[in-house]
Design a binder for these strands. Structure first.
Lengths: 229, 229
DNA sequence: ATAATAGTGTCTCTTAGACAATATTTC
DNA sequence: GAAATATTGTCTAAGAGACACTATTAT
C-alpha cells in the first residue's frame, strides 16, 4: 500500500468510558440507556465521538464530565476497538478509557443519554449491551483488578479521607474475595507513602475508632498486594 | 453532543508497529526511512493506514508481514495516539501494536519504505523520529520490559529451540542488566511449563553442552521474575 | 591441565499468610 | 459485660538472591 495524504477510507473515532466505582461493597459501573438507533433502548457504556480539535484524553474527560459531572478522577487509556462491523452505521474506531471514581451521588442525567446510572458489574454482565461493550467492560474490569495488585489505584475509589478497613473494602469488592484485615492493615502501612495518617478517627465502621488516612504520593506498590488465585 | 450517524469529523486511522528483537545481545527495533512527505527521509516506525474492511489486528499483521515477511510472531495492541496535530496532513488516530520476534534475517525492503532495518534501541533513541514515534517507541519498550516480568513472552524472542542461557540473554538485553545464571536457571525450571526440555544439547555457547528447550504452554509467570530496581 | 559454561545445592533474609492477643468503641 | 472492629505481634513456610561446588565440553 502507499502512504499518501489522500485516499484513505474515512473513519469515525469515538471514546467509550468504563467508569467504575464501589458502592455498597460492590464494584459498579456507569451505564446509560441508548436514546437512539442503533441499539435504541439498550444499555451501553457512556461515550461519544471525538471532536475535531480535541485530543483523545480531552474527549474522554469531556464525556466523563458530561455523564457524571465530576472531573477529577483517574483516567487512563484502556484499549481500542475497531472491528469493521462493530457499528452498523459506519466504520467506527473507539478508544476506551478507564476511570476509577469514589462513590459518587447518582449521576446527573446526561444530555444525550436518557438514564445514566450505576449497575453492579455482575448484574450488568447478565444483560446484553450495545455494540461490543461487553467486551470493553470485561477488559476494563480486568484492568482495574490487575492494577490494584501493583499500584496504589485503590485510593482512587476512596473519598479524600478513609480508613484502612474502607480501603480493604475496595479490594474486596473489586476482587470479590475476602482479605485478612490484620495482614492487610500491616501490608498497607508497610508500603512507603501509600497512605498518610491524619490525626482524626472515625467510628462509622463500628467498633473501635479507626484512624483516617489520605492517599499518599506513592503510585507503585512494591511489593505488590497479590490477588489470591 | 449528539450521537448521530452523520456529521462526525472524518479521521484517518492507521496502525504503527513496534517490532522488537534481540540481536547481538541488544534490544533492537525495526524502523524504516520515510520515502515521502511529511518527515521525508526521517526514521519512522513501520505502519500504514487501516483498510476499509480489515480489523485492527489484521491491519497490524498485514503491515508486519509487508515489512518483515514474517507472519507468526506475537502481536498485541499497545496503545492509541491521536493528538490533533500529530500528523500535519490531517487528523490521524494511530493504533500501535507491539510485536516480539526472534532474531530475523535482515528484513526485505518494504514496498513502501525505502530502507527497513534493525536499530539498537539506544541508538535510535538518540535520533529524531517522525511523528510522535519516539513516544510510541518508549511505550513499546516499557511494555516489553514489563511483560518479561510476569509472562513467558521472552520465549517469543527466541528461536524454536534455545538454551536457558540464551533465554537469560533475552532478559539481559531487554532489561540491560546482568542476571545470576544460577538463580535464573533454577527459577526458569521451577516455573511449571515455562520451557520444555528436548533430548538435544548444544555447545554453541561454549563450555559444557547445554540442554535445548522449547517454549512451554505457560503464559503467566508466577512467581514473576523481578526486574531489579 | 585450564578455561569456559552448565547445572545443583546451601544459606540467609524478606515477605506472605495464619492466627493469637490486646485496645477502644457502642449497645 | 458482650459484641464489634482496630491494631499490634508472633510464628511458619516459601521465595529471592548470594555464592560454593560439581559436571562436561574445547583447546
Amino acid at each position: 500500500m502507499t502512504i499518501s495524504a489522500v485516499g484513505h477510507p474515512p473513519f469515525a473515532v469515538a471514546v467509550d468510558l468504563v467508569i467504575l466505582t464501589v458502592r455498597r461493597d460492590s464494584l459498579c459501573i456507569l451505564a446509560v440507556e441508548r436514546g437512539e438507533e442503533p441499539f435504541l433502548g439498550m444499555t451501553a457504556l457512556p461515550g461519544g465521538f471525538v471532536h475535531p480539535d480535541e485530543s483523545l484524553p480531552q474527549a474522554a474527560a469531556r464525556e466523563l464530565e458530561e455523564e457524571t459531572g465530576v472531573a477529577k478522577v483517574h483516567l487512563e487509556q484502556l484499549a481500542s476497538y475497531g472491528d469493521p462491523d462493530r457499528d452498523p452505521r459506519m466504520r467506527v474506531v473507539s478508544i476506551a478509557y478507564l476511570a476509577l471514581a469514589p462513590d459518587l451521588p447518582a449521576p446527573v442525567a446526561g444530555t444525550d443519554a436518557s438514564a445514566a446510572d450505576w449497575y453492579p458489574i455482575d448484574a450488568l454482565r447478565r444483560k446484553d449491551l450495545a455494540f461490543d461493550h461487553e467486551h470493553i467492560l470485561s477488559d476494563g474490569v480486568e484492568r482495574a483488578r490487575s492494577k490494584l495488585e501493583y499500584t496504589t489505584l485503590a485510593t482512587a475509589f476512596c473519598p479524600r479521607e478513609f480508613t484502612i478497613a474502607e480501603l480493604r473494602g475496595i479490594y474486596e469488592a473489586v476482587w470479590e474475595i475476602e482479605l485478612d484485615p490484620r495482614n492487610f492493615h500491616r501490608k498497607v502501612l508497610a508500603t512507603d507513602d501509600f497512605v498518610r495518617p491524619t490525626s482524626k478517627t472515625t467510628t462509622r465502621t463500628g467498633g473501635r475508632p479507626a484512624r483516617l488516612y489520605r492517599a499518599g504520593r506513592a503510585t507503585e506498590l512494591y511489593p505488590p498486594i497479590r490477588r489470591p488465585s
